[in-house]
Design a protein around this nucleic acid. Structure first.
Length: 336
DNA sequence: GTAATTTGACCCAG
DNA sequence: CTGGGTCAAATTAC
């Protein structure tokens, strides 16, 4: 844990700084209305990617005691992208295009780590799913499960998800969501959040309510396309000095995504009380920025795979080596 | 009894 | 043709 700590810290800090810089860019563009929605979207995605990557690194740092793998080795395994954006097939059947199967519904991914001691409860995403299939996937150690919204028939909700246990780390489930939930919208109320038996979810305890910081954070996090308020969210964003960064950041990513999607999920807080869950989402399901065509989704999602390491937009900023010592102030009030 | 899950068959894009 | 995704009958759970 000590040997590569400097590398870890600088890598994490770099990601966070990158996120900060891009947030500044975004703020600038928003306040000056000088950029197209697509560009703003890309900037936002970069921010999320940076946080996701940092989060991944933090997760690794936290659990590295039992991991023989070095961080550089782990990063090398990632197909040159933050965890938030790679498609599951990248690990195994990299050549296959997974984003264009049949119905080209908006697709995004979560990566959920379960803790070993909680009976596997996780991924209580507030929706009710019904399993409709399971397949052994070529080259994958574990079968893939297929779920659709319970209210597919009654409310014509087309949302589906695929759940597959990671080969490398069986505590991680890769969840691919397809399509937006329309069930709760149609019913003008929140989704029922009924307990669902799932491959990785065998208990039905509701997660404890989000802590105050998170509530506060969430309340402040309103990203609207018609109201340049993302800086407000940024201004209010600071890390608590405690250890909650996992759920905080997870929720950050998730919340931004949901706000953009206009698909509010009442309690998609990491139910994993150990904080070892993380979510990472590609926020390309929103309608607010104008309807993206199916091909747009595909393009964005695939382009997405290299957001952090090879930016898809030419951004004329440099990452300054600001305050990059080993004591990076996560709880610095003026983080943004 | 209904609802959810399992699982082999079928569909279809590549 | 192959493999991933879906269907639907059978089975299991509640």
């Amino acid at each position: 844990m000590e040997t590569s700590s400097e590398f870890e810290k600088s890598t994490i800090a770099s990601e966070l700084i990158q996120g900060m810089e891009v947030a500044k860019q975004l703020k600038f563009h928003l306040t000056t209305a000088s950029s197209s929605p697509e560009n703003l979207l890309t900037l936002l995605q970069k921010i999320l990617s940076s946080y996701d990557t940092a989060l991944l690194l933090l997760n690794w740092t936290e659990s590295s005691a039992g991991q023989p793998q070095t961080l550089p080795a782990m990063l090398a395994q990632l197909p040159e992208s933050p965890i938030s954006t790679y498609e599951s097939g990248d690990f195994k059947d990299h050549h296959r295009d997974v984003s264009k199967k049949r119905k080209a519904l908006p697709t995004w991914k979560d990566h959920v780590r379960i803790s070993s001691d909680n009976g596997g409860e996780n991924s209580a995403d507030g929706y009710s799913w019904r399993k409709y299939g399971q397949k052994d996937i070529l080259g994958a150690a574990h079968p893939r499960s297929y779920y659709r919204c319970t209210y597919r028939k009654t409310r014509s909700c087309q949302a589906t998800k695929q759940v597959q246990r990671s080969d490398n780390d069986s505590a991680i489930f890769e969840i691919t969501y397809k399509g937006k939930h329309t069930c709760h919208k149609a019913g003008n109320s929140v989704p029922p959040a009924k307990p669902v038996k799932q491959e990785q979810n065998r208990s039905d305890h509701r997660p404890q309510p989000p802590n105050e910081a998170l509530i506060n954070f969430r309340a402040n996090l309103r990203v609207k396309t018609d109201d340049c308020r993302i800086h407000e969210a940024a201004d209010s964003f600071s890390f608590p000095s405690g250890m909650e960064y996992n759920s905080q950041l997870s929720s950050f990513s998730q919340l931004v995504n949901e706000d953009l999607m206009g698909t509010f999920s009442p309690s998609f807080i990491s139910p994993d009380t150990t904080g070892s869950s993380y979510f990472s989402v590609s926020p390309y399901q929103m309608n607010s920025f104008g309807q993206l065509s199916d091909s747009d989704y595909t393009e964005i999602i695939s382009a997405n795979t290299s957001t952090t390491t090879s930016p898809i937009l030419d951004l004329d900023f440099q990452i300054d080596e600001v305050n990059l010592d080993s004591n990076f102030p996560f709880d610095m009030p003026g983080f943004f």
